[in-house]
Amino acid sequence: MSLRISTAPHMHNPLTTQRLMQFVFIALLPTAAWGVYAFGFSALLVLLLSMASAVAAEFVWQKIAKQPVRVGDFSALVTGLILGLNLPATAPWWMVIIGSAFAIIIVKQLFGGLGDNFLNPALAARAVLLASWPVHMTASACVNPTFFQAGVDAVSTATPLGAPGTFTLTQLFLGQCPGAIGEVSKAAILLGFLFLLLTGVISWRIPVITVCSVYVCTMLIGGADWQGALAAVLSGGVLFGSVFMATDYVTSPITPWGQVIYAVLIGLIITLIRLFGSYPEGVTYGILLMNIATPLIDRLPRTIYGVKKEAKKA
């Protein structure tokens, strides 16, 4: 009789990386669905194309690099979907493909693949697209003009950040405003957030603190009243970014206190860029900058059982 031998432990929590990615994918569906409903068929095409090209880029790269093909772990699919949700429904097809390929090959694979990228791939790709084709990225069309009675121009209007005060808080919350496909409906994003919390995929810390930080910073630095600060939170990609992108495991700090520092600073940077920068929106750069700071934050000392705080050398 032959028995297998191994070192302990002999069992595992059933939760796997693949399952985690599937949960994130499911959590993104409500906001994706709203995006397709609000912006129409072209939004669906953008999402499908970004997912397909992200998975294809990962597959092709791993084949070329003679690496084990890990497309089955769903991470490329999630990256593709997040990137798609970050784009306007009017994004041309070639831009979507370039974005996906950049995210997967340049940001993720060239730095070592899953787990080793120092920036959130979808977000880095968005930043590149924004710098390269700002007109395509900020044009925010809508095919369903009934939602946007308050808007100046039903077909092509500035985002709420470009024209503050154009939309009511309710419109901003429900997603009756222009913007990137996935960022408009805060209600749908909160639904996804709730799902991620209940399944234990993420903790409340990063999203809640980031949002609070934006709120407080807008009040303190921008001098906004509570309504203005709330509008700032509900405008643009704050909610989408803090729930789905700032919480990316790979590029956010691991320790609870590290996450607090990270989230507070993201909120601060977003607000500073919005108030004083030349861009109307700062979510992308706020998160990317803190992604870069993450390895540093993870080095903060922790309390270890039985280890006295190391006495300072005189």
């Binding site: 929590n13 990386t17 985690l20 890990r70 772990d73 991470s75 693949g113 899953l114 787990g115 080793d116 495991y249 790979v250 590029t251 956010s252 691991i254 320790t255």
Partner: peptide, 9 residues
């Protein structure tokens, strides 16, 4: 083993 995704668990 698959790659560490830094989930912090």
């Amino acid at each position: 083993e698959s790659p560490c995704i830094h989930c912090g668990r």
